[in-house]
């Protein structure tokens, strides 16, 4: 996901053109600087998953699937369920992607989205304990990127959250020392809806929800995740550029404001309010 896929000549010329446009407050696709692309969320698309969602953000498309299984807790949190978010950019998603184990970009993507879900306390992990130190529910959310057109962070975040919001899990009960499926079905216990908003810095201008074309010329990006009460619960600056401190505060303002709109859209699409 770095800038290495494009010719330097084209990149430099394109960047000059885009910076000129941005200095007039315009973007190459006609959006406002802080405007995000059209978001479409479809849930329940994979019957065999406990929860799933396809998110389309502009031309970026990702699919998330939730699998809930009985598992063992981590030694330092014996009374809490396990949550794991994984991400993979599939080779069919863009010409530059090659098959193989997740590279540093995919690892960062999964970890930043994981942080947003975890730190917002979206999932009540304490209620996912079956027997302390022995048996807990393990919630795996895996995201596959189907088409890359920038801002994988937010598309992945919305897909993970939407899949979790609509996920149903079997109720496991203790039988002696083992757990068994009781046949009952429960919703995955969700309390909050974290929403990430990614802002790129191109030249000295901040733009929300960058496309691939914009990412190719950006200096740096910052992803900020907010919860329902406008708390900032996860953040990540990325790419080898910088931010002046005051632009970070501007980015936080945009992340809170746009985050509210996107949370409403996700709520509507998942039947949560």
């Amino acid at each position: 996901m770095s800038a290495s896929k494009k010719s330097y000549v084209v990149e430099t010329l394109r960047k000059a053109q885009m910076i000129e446009l941005l200095s007039k407050g315009k973007r190459i696709d006609g959006r406002q600087l802080d405007e995000t692309r059209k978001l479409d969320v479809r849930t329940g698309v994979i019957e065999k998953a406990n929860g799933s969602a396809i998110v389309t953000l502009g031309n970026t498309q990702v699919i998330a699937g939730v699998k809930v299984q009985p598992g063992t807790p981590f030694p330092d949190t014996p009374d809490k369920g396990v949550l794991m978010v994984g991400a993979e950019v599939l080779p069919l998603a863009a010409a530059y992607v090659e098959a193989g184990p997740p590279d540093e970009g995919a690892i960062e993507l999964a970890r930043v989205v994981d942080r947003g879900v975890r730190e917002s306390e979206m999932i009540d992990l304490a209620s996912l304990c079956i027997k302390e130190g022995k048996h807990v529910y393990a919630v795996f959310v895996d995201v596959n990127v189907l088409n890359v057109d920038g801002n994988l962070f937010d598309a992945t975040s919305y897909a993970v959250v939407s899949a979790l919001l609509t996920a149903k899990m079997p109720k496991y009960v203790l039988e002696g020392d083992a757990v068994k499926n009781s046949g009952e079905v429960l919703p995955v216990p969700v309390a909050k809806i974290p929403v990430s908003v990614t802002i790129a810095r191109v030249g000295n201008t901040l733009i929300a929800d960058p496309t691939s074309e914009e990412e190719a010329v950006m200096d740096s990006r910052i992803t900020l995740t907010t919860d329902d009460e406008s708390n900032i619960c996860a953040g990540q600056k990325g790419e080898p550029g910088t931010f002046p401190p005051e632009q970070i505060l501007q980015a936080a303002e945009v992340a809170i404001r746009r985050g509210k709109e996107i949370r409403q859209a996700i709520k509507a699409a998942t039947g949560h309010g």
């Binding site: 708390n231 996860a234 600056k237």
Partner: peptide
């Protein structure tokens, strides 16, 4: 200029 910023928790 800020070159690294990460955050987890509730702020």
């Amino acid at each position: 200029l800020v070159t690294l910023l990460q955050l987890d928790g509730l702020f």
